[in-house]
């Protein structure tokens, strides 16, 4: 009897362990890989494309988000009417923290996939992102909504923010999982730095898995040399800029000698 009981406990334990392993195996199965994870900015750079792909469990919805790892404070000018009819910059406001780049795609509208608290926790969708941004000086709730809306539109006009539903290709995988693939147009306005692409698997209103990969954007060649000099050797850079301008002005003046002096 005791033998049977011991055997049953061992079998039960092994079953639980197996289930745990299988479950954790499924969680670990989600992957994310960017095909173009080291973007080089040279003089002919005009943006790039970044495709993010991986495998995940079947039957899940997905978010794929690309954002900068460093989030900074951004100073903006708020416009309002002065003297009743003139639109002017009336005050400087600070938004913090805001990512330099925020690109997100999902298989369904974010609000249909997750509730507001989960969207906020992972900054998913503009709604989730906006919830995490503090504005100083603190505006009224209506003004805050309007300011954040305009901020997003401003960033979209620069090409560094975008949100869309769809555009993620999902296919069954022979292993029983599914593969996903999406391509982002990488904006040339995005500054050099470290970025991260994160894929989220969502099921029944919960995030069930996530995976991420790093994307590095770096200046090379003449772009790096000039930017470094402008930032770290400003006196030489300024003198050089003036010297070249003066030389070019005189040079063209000499070339046009005949035309100008009749």
């Amino acid at each position: 009897m005791r033998y049977l009981l011991t055997k049953s406990i061992i079998v039960l334990t092994l079953t639980v362990l197996l289930l745990v392993c299988l479950t954790s195996g499924a969680w670990a199965a989600m992957t994310a890989k960017a095909n173009h994870d080291d973007i080089q900015m040279n003089l002919t750079y005009h943006g790039s494309t970044v495709s993010v792909s991986g495998v995940t469990d079947p039957g899940v919805d997905l978010f794929v988000k690309v954002t900068s790892t460093a989030k900074a404070e951004e100073k903006m000018m708020r416009k309002d009417k002065e003297a009743g009819f003139l639109w002017m910059n009336v005050e400087q406001i600070e938004l913090n923290p805001v990512p330099e780049v925020y690109l997100i795609r999902s298989t369904k509208p974010p609000e249909e996939l997750l509730d507001a608290s989960q969207l906020k926790a992972e900054s998913l969708g503009y709604a989730g992102l906006e919830e995490n941004i503090e504005i100083s000086p603190q505006p009224s709730p209506e003004q805050r909504k309007s300011l954040l809306g305009d901020f997003i539109k401003y960033k979209e006009s620069l090409g560094v923010y975008s949100q869309s539903v769809g555009g993620i290709e999902i296919n069954p995988d022979p292993s029983g999982q599914q593969t996903y693939h999406t391509i982002f147009d990488w904006p040339y306005q995005a500054p050099p730095g470290d970025y991260v692409a994160t894929a989220y698997a969502v099921k029944n209103g919960k995030i069930v898995d996530k995976a991420d990969c790093k994307i590095t954007v770096e200046e090379t060649g003449a772009v790096k040399t000039l930017d470094d000099m402008a930032q770290n050797n400003a006196a030489l850079y300024g003198t050089l800029a003036i010297g070249v301008s003066l030389t070019a002005g005189f040079g063209v003046g000499l070339v046009f000698k005949g035309g100008g002096s009749h």
């Binding site: 100073k75 903006m76 000018m77 708020r78 416009k79 309002d80 639109w87 910059n89 400087q92 406001i93 309007s146 300011l147 305009d150 901020f151 539109k153 401003y154």
Partner: peptide, 8 residues
């Protein structure tokens, strides 16, 4: 203006 926010 289209946007009531602009760069500083």
């Amino acid at each position: 203006p289209d946007l009531l926010l602009g760069p500083a």
